[in-house]
Structures are given as C-alpha cells and as structure tokens.
Design a protein around this nucleic acid. Sequence first.
DNA 1: CGAAGAAACTGGTCGGACCAGTTGACGTGT
DNA 2: ACACGTCAACTGGTCCGACCAGTTTCTTCG
Lengths: 247, 247
Amino acid sequence: MSGFSPVERTSVATAVFDQIAARILDGTLPVGERLPAERALTEEFGVNRQALREALQRLDQLGLVEIRHGGATRVRDFRRTAGLDLLPRLFLGADGGIDATTVRSVMEMRTAIGADASSLAAGRASAEVRAALHDVLADLESLVTDGGADDTAGLAAIDVRFWDLLIEGSGNVCYRLSVNVLRDAYRPVEALVDLLVMDERRDVAAHRDLIAAVEAGDGERARARAVALLDQGRAAVLAHFSEEERG
Amino acid sequence: MSGFSPVERTSVATAVFDQIAARILDGTLPVGERLPAERALTEEFGVNRQALREALQRLDQLGLVEIRHGGATRVRDFRRTAGLDLLPRLFLGADGGIDATTVRSVMEMRTAIGADASSLAAGRASAEVRAALHDVLADLESLVTDGGADDTAGLAAIDVRFWDLLIEGSGNVCYRLSVNVLRDAYRPVEALVDLLVMDERRDVAAHRDLIAAVEAGDGERARARAVALLDQGRAAVLAHFSEEERG
DNA sequence: CGAAGAAACTGGTCGGACCAGTTGACGTGT
DNA sequence: ACACGTCAACTGGTCCGACCAGTTTCTTCG
C-alpha cells in the first residue's frame, strides 16, 4: 500500500512561531507594527505563556521581531535585520508555491561561493583533502560508467562530498556555514532540483578539470572551472523556474 | 568626565545561552555529548526552567544542540549544522581575543559577495538605484575633498549606503541577508577595521569606476572593479592580523 | 533467550504568582 | 501656560510546582 506520509508532530511553540513568522514574511504584519502583549497572544493562540515566549524568542533571534523589556514587541524589517538563516523560510511565498526569486538568488550564491572556495582551495587544500577529492572523482566516474548516471540519490551524495571537500579545503568558515544554510533551504525542492542539476553532477570531465586546477594550485583556473561547472545547474534551474512563471 | 560605558543588562536566559554556546564553540562540550537534563541544569545555573528552556531553544535554532522530546539534548557539530548566523559568535576565540581565521573568512566572503552583486547589479539595477549610487558618489567626493578624509564615521556611513545600493541592485536576497550577518559579525572589531579599510573607502576613483561599469551594464567589468576595490581593505586587514599573529 | 510491559528517565505544556523595566497620564509647582 | 516629578498602568522577565508526552531502560514472563 503506502502513499501515506509521516504525521507532523510540531510543538506548540513551533506552531506559534510558524504562524507569526508567516505573517511577518508575507507583509500582513507590517514593519514597526507592535505585536499584542504576550498575555493577549496566549489567549489568541490558546497556548501557555511559556510556549508563546519560546516562539517570540526564536523570532527575535531570527531578526523578525524586536523584544524590549517593559516596552512592546515590534516587527522588524527582516530585509535589514535578518541573517542568512532566514533563507529556508523565504522559499515558500504567500501563495504557498516556490518563490522563483529566492531560488535564483540561491543558485547565484551557490556559484559565487563555490567559485571563490575553489580558488582558495587551490592555494590551501591539504594533501588529505586533495586525496579525498580524487577518491570522490573516482567514485563519480565509476557510478556514471556503470550505468548509474540516472541515480539521482547517488549523484547527489557524491555532489555533497565533492563540494564539502572544496569548502573545507578553502579554509573559509563563512562558506562552510553558508553552505549549510543553502542546503537546508533547498530541501523543500530537493526532488525537483536533483533532477534539474543532474547534467551538472554527472559531468565527469568538468569535475576532473576543476580538481586538476586545484591540484596545480592555479586559483584563477579553478575559479573559472568552478563557474563553468556550477553555471550548468544554475542555467537549468533558472530555465525551469522562469518558464514556470510565464506558463 | 565620561569614560564610562553602558551597563550590560543581560537577561538570565541570554546569560545561560552565552555560557553553553561558549562551551560548545571552544570544544569543552564535545560533539555528541549529552547535556544534563533541564531540571539538573536549572540547579547548576541557579535559574528557573523557563529561562533555561528559552536558552536551549535558541541553541537549537542556531544549530548548536539538538533537542528531542523524551530523549536527551545533544551537542551538534556546528560546522555541519549551524548557519551563517553563528558567525558573530565565532569572532571571539577561546582566549578572548579576535580569531584571525574568522576575520580572514569574512573579508574573503565580503569580496566574493560584493563582486558578484556588482556584476548582477550591472544587469539589473533600476534607474532609482543608479541615481542613488551617483548621489552617494557625490557625497563621498565632497567629504574627501572637504578634508573629511579622516572622518572614519562619515566614511563608514557612506560605505554602508554604497554597498547597500549595490546589493539591492543585484536583486539577490541571499546577499542582502548575508551582508546583514557580516556587518553584525564585524561589530566587535568595528573601530579597528574602520581604520584599516579607510584607504579603500576614500578611494573615490575606484568607486567611480565601479559605478561607471554598473551604469554601462558591463557585468564583468563591474566584477573586476569591485574585486579591485574590496581587495584593498582585505589586504589591509589581513596584513594587520597576520602580523599580530607573528608578534 | 527473547519479547512484552512496567518504571524511570527525558523534554513539553500548563497556570498563576510576582519581579522589573517603560510609558504616559496626572497632578503640582513655578 | 508650561516644566517637572510622581505614580499608576502598562509592557516583558522570572519564578514555582504540577502534570502531559514521548524515550529509554530494566524487569519480568513466556
């Protein structure tokens, strides 16, 4: 049988958080607006004050509201105060669909970070990282040649290993953390994107060229080849979403 | 008189949060370690469970711990699970000093994002943004020529306006959010960095060239000029911190 | 020995009381 | 009429103790 999906067990605090966050992100709660007092919100949501406060704390940490002891809790301008961790919540627009602008932004940032990380890795990657890169390349080659070129899950796993190594090799902690967020953000569209970027992921030659540039310590060449590689997926994803917009 | 500084009024929850976060970030609490039960922690910290829970919720949201209903709360591998919002907390190393690696990472990311945003802005910036860029450039010129070339605060303010416009012109929400974090992160070293990047900020010609490239819609030239501009500050900051390391 | 079940954990929710800042209205004095 | 101090009525912050809801562990029985 099957066809069922896991029941979502969200805590009360999370439920409250989600509701308020959605209202702020879609503009229903305008910037500067003061939220009702906590005691009033507890009645409105029908939850205890503890749960309500946990939700507000998280909203504050994300940069969506500003809590002031004694004063009111106000909606902040998240475009100015929120951090990249907000990204996963921006994917779903007001209509519940995927926000094409956010997708485009993510693909652009992916390219920018991947390219710069590759360039940096060319100058910094340790022998261990370089050896591991060769292993990943070998795995990719064998997967593709052994008829696994349509194995989206296998390709995705190798892709993660490949870029994790380059990011680690770059020695840049910002990139490391940003990648975590980008990956988190694209999870809701994972199945679709895995299909769209398949051509990029199974392009063995492009991966080999990139590793060669890193190996040679040629940062600029590594950057160029990373851009070439990552632009494949970007173009594919962009084409899909801009087409969807027109249709 | 003066010489005083504002008293820090931290909430109990924040104090708990800070202590645990510091322990996780400096490795005192190893990855996978299970935290004591909430009721045990309340006694250890001498605070109420509500405050304790608010702190734990925030740690969870940052990706530092994983809370599971019924199970234990465990320390996560923040390098894998935390987002860019963690960055401001990475600046202060175990010894209380500034972490040079983090500073270097931020300067690198600043260049990467600034360059790509400039390139994108060249193709997308609206007439309003371009006009505003000219205004900022005019303000920079007048400030520098009127003897304000040593006005760090004035230069910093113009710098913020300049890059905010380019980021907005790029239409990339990821960059917008990332910049918020980067700015937040560099706040503890603000005074120092403002001095180090002064040469970059008062380089009127470089700013003018960049705007011209954006105006011409030449993405690649805009990118190159942004890199040239941003690399000035990066080099200065890097020189300072690597020198400090040796000394 | 293995599996069902009970007990002892864990975090999650509740309610109500009180502490601590902020705000603004209301007098009071000039 | 105006400026100022005061106070009451907000706001969020902290505490307590109880109970609900999952997980883990150990016991017990087949």
